Amino acid sequence: MEIVPNDVFDAVRRGYADLEAASVDEITAYFDRIDASEALGHSNHIKGILFEQEYVEALETAGIGASLFEATNHPGTDVLVFGGAEAVSEIQLKATDSVSYVTAAMQEDPEIAFAVTTEVAAQMSSQVVIDTGIENAALESAVADTLFQEAVSPFGIFSLARLFFGIPF
């Protein structure tokens, strides 16, 4: 599944009430004004929303009913999965390549199902997680290439955050 710029713009519209009805040019202008020191936080927020949207789309393409909660900050879980007309499962998604970040979240909520990026799923074979088939690197690239070209170094905004601050994304 390819992540296209319109998917990123849809994630922005979902995650920023001020930009819900904004055009592509208005969204681009908004993020052009973002201070470079704030770009990482915005990128991470958008990446998480984009991941949710892409996963629901992948489930629906596979014939599995799924939906997002109305609020992007729904407590505990991110996606509802349906069996017929009834919700049968709630899943929390983690858009990261950090196994320790996911493991810590799983310890906090052991009753919740976790769906993770392909990079994390490959490293967590001994633990039960759902491999979404979506790469963290693809999410990062889509967000950075679409919105933060000016704020991104040749090393990438997410790579620098991990390198210098140990921030798990």
Rank of each mutant, 00 (worst) to 15 (best):
Met1Phe: 09
Met1Val: 09
Glu2Gly: 12
Glu2Gln: 13
Glu2Tyr: 12
Ile3Val: 00
Asp7Arg: 00
Asp7Phe: 00
Val8Gln: 03
Ala11Ser: 02
Ala11Val: 02
Val12Tyr: 01
Arg13Met: 03
Gly15Phe: 03
Gly15His: 01
Asp18Gln: 15
Glu20Lys: 12
Ala21Ser: 15
Ala22Thr: 04
Ala22Gly: 00
Val24Ser: 09
Val24Arg: 15
Val24Trp: 02
Val24Phe: 15
Asp25Gly: 08
Glu26Asn: 04
Glu26Trp: 05
Ile27Ala: 08
Ile27Cys: 11
Ala29Ile: 09
Ala29Ser: 12
Tyr30Pro: 12
Tyr30Lys: 09
Arg33Lys: 14
Arg33Asp: 11
Arg33Gln: 12
Arg33Ile: 11
Ala36Asp: 13
Glu38Val: 06
Ala39Tyr: 00
Leu40Thr: 03
Leu40Phe: 04
Gly41Pro: 03
Asn44Gly: 05
His45Cys: 10
Ile49Asn: 01
Ile49Val: 10
Glu52Phe: 02
Gln53Asp: 12
Tyr55Gln: 05
Tyr55Thr: 09
Ala58Thr: 06
Glu60Gly: 04
Glu60Arg: 13
Thr61Pro: 04
Gly65Ile: 02
Ser67Asp: 13
Leu68Val: 13
Leu68His: 08
Leu68Trp: 06
Glu70Asn: 11
Ala71Arg: 15
Ala71Leu: 11
Thr72Gln: 15
Asn73Thr: 06
Pro75Tyr: 04
Pro75Trp: 08
Pro75Val: 05
Gly76Ile: 08
Thr77Ile: 03
Asp78Ala: 07
Leu80Ser: 15
Val81Trp: 08
Phe82Tyr: 11
Gly83Gln: 11
Gly83Arg: 10
Ala85Cys: 15
Glu86Gln: 15
Glu86Trp: 12
Ser89Leu: 11
Ser89Glu: 15
Ile91Met: 12
Gln92His: 11
Lys94Phe: 03
Thr96Asp: 03
Thr96Lys: 03
Ser98Gln: 05
Ser100Thr: 07
Ser100Trp: 04
Tyr101Lys: 10
Ala104Trp: 13
Ala105Asp: 07
Gln107Ile: 07
Glu108Phe: 10
Asp109Arg: 14
Asp109Gly: 08
Pro110Gly: 02
Glu111Ser: 09
Ile112Thr: 10
Phe114Tyr: 02
Ala115Glu: 08
Val116Lys: 00
Thr117Leu: 00
Thr117Met: 01
Thr118Asn: 05
Glu119Cys: 00
Glu119Asn: 05
Glu119Phe: 06
Val120Met: 02
Val120Arg: 00
Ala121Asn: 02
Ala122Ser: 08
Ala122Asp: 14
Met124Trp: 06
Ser125Tyr: 11
Val128Leu: 14
Val128Pro: 12
Asp131Tyr: 14
Asp131Leu: 13
Gly133Trp: 15
Glu135Phe: 11
Asn136Gly: 09
Ala137Ile: 09
Ala137Glu: 08
Ala137Cys: 06
Ala138Thr: 07
Ala138Gly: 09
Leu139Met: 04
Leu139Glu: 10
Ser141Glu: 15
Ser141Val: 14
Val143His: 02
Val143Ser: 02
Val143Arg: 00
Leu147Val: 01
Ala151Gln: 02
Ala151Asn: 01
Pro154Met: 05
Phe155Val: 11
Phe158Glu: 04
Phe158Ser: 03
Leu160Ala: 15
Leu160Trp: 10
Leu160Pro: 13
Ala161Asn: 03
Ala161Arg: 08
Leu163His: 13
Phe165Cys: 12
Phe165Ala: 10
Ile167Tyr: 05
Pro168Lys: 00
Pro168Ala: 01
